[in-house]
Amino acid sequence: MSNETPWNFLMDMDGVLVREEHLVPGADAFVAELRDNGIGFMVLTNNSIYTPRDLQARLKRTGLEIPEASIWTSALATARFLDEQRPGGSAYVVGESGLTTALHNIGYVLTDRDPDYVVLGETRTYSFEAITRAIRLVENGARFIATNPDEKGPSREGSLPATGAVAALIERVTGRAPYYVGKPNPLMMRSALRTLGAHSESTLMIGDRMDTDVRSGLEAGLQTILVLSGISDRDTAELFPYRPTKVMNSVADLVGITHDPFGTTAAAENA
C-alpha cells in the first residue's frame, strides 16, 4: 500500500477511542490526524441503544470531534439489512431510540400486529411483557433478527444482560434462532464499507476484541489491528486460531503513520 492509495479506517469505539466515558490517551490526536489529512474513517459500535447523534455528543464530551456521518451502529446495519431484504416492511421492536429511529428512517412500520420481523436490540429496561410478546410473534411466524450477539454489558454495579442473552432466552422458548447482524458478522463491516465508499483491500479494522473486531475484519477481507487499550491483551490474542495483522498498545501508536500503518513503504524503499 503506497501513499498514492491511502488506507481507510474502521474502528471500534469502546476500548479503542474511549473507555468508560474517558478518552483513551492519544485517541484525539489520532482522529485529528485522520480528519486533517482527509482519510476516510468510520467508528463502529455493536450498541444499538443510541443514535449516531447521541454518540457524537457522547464522544464530544470526551474531547473527540467525530462527524455524525462517521458513526455506524448495529442498529443502522440492521436497518440497512432489512431494507435490502424486505423494503417497506414491518417490525416489532424490543429496543431503544437508536434502533427505532433507524427503522423509521427506512420507512418501516413498527407494530405488534403480525409484523414481518421481531427485531431485538439493547435496552436499559428489558420488559417481561415485551419479551413475552416477542416470543409469541416469533412462534406465529415473525422472522427473528437481533442487532448483535453481545451477551452482557458493563455498568458501575457489574454486568448487565445484553442482546445476546435475551435472544438466547427467546430462542430457548421458541426454538427459533435469530439472525445476528452486528459484529462478528462481516455483514456489518461490509455495510460500513459501502457507507464509507471504501474497498476492503484499502481498509483496516482497529479493535480491542479478538472475538468480534478482529474476527469480523478478517472475515470481511480487511487488514486488522488489535489494540491493547480495551478487553484483549497479548495473552488473550494467543488463545485464538487466527491473528490480527498487527498488535499495538493503542491508537496513539498510529499517530504519524496513518498513511502507512504497516511500514510497507519503508520496507519497499529499503528492499
Rank of each mutant, 00 (worst) to 15 (best):
T174N: 05
S2N: 14
A77G: 15
Y108C: 05
E122A: 15
T5E: 02
D116M: 00
E157N: 10
N105I: 01
L59F: 04
E129N: 12
E20F: 13
P52Q: 14
E139K: 15
L76D: 00
V93A: 08
M13A: 04
I39K: 05
G164R: 14
M210N: 08
I231C: 02
E33A: 13
T73N: 04
H199K: 04
R80H: 07
A162C: 15
T51P: 01
L187I: 08
W72S: 01
P244G: 11
Q85C: 06
H22Q: 15
P67S: 01
V181Q: 04
I206H: 08
S250W: 10
T123W: 08
V31E: 01
P154S: 02
H199A: 13
V94W: 11
R58C: 04
Q223Y: 08
R58M: 04
M188Y: 06
Y92R: 09
M11N: 09
N148K: 01
D116Y: 00
D14E: 09
P244M: 11
D211A: 13
S216P: 02
V251E: 03
A75Q: 08
D36R: 11
G107Y: 02
S155I: 11
D36E: 15
I106E: 12
R124Y: 06
F81L: 06
V24G: 02
A198G: 14
A198S: 13
P241D: 14
N270Y: 12
I257L: 03
L218N: 14
M13V: 01
S191L: 05
D253N: 13
D211T: 06
V227R: 09
N140I: 01
D253E: 15
Y117F: 15
N47I: 00
R176I: 13
P186A: 02
G15Q: 00
A142C: 07
T265S: 11
T147Y: 08
I39F: 11
A177D: 12
R53N: 07
N8H: 07
S97V: 09
A198F: 10
I71D: 02
R136A: 11
G26I: 01
F144Q: 09
E201G: 12
E157F: 12
R156I: 02
V118F: 02
T123R: 12
H199L: 05
A102R: 03
A198M: 07
L239T: 14
R215N: 06
S159P: 06
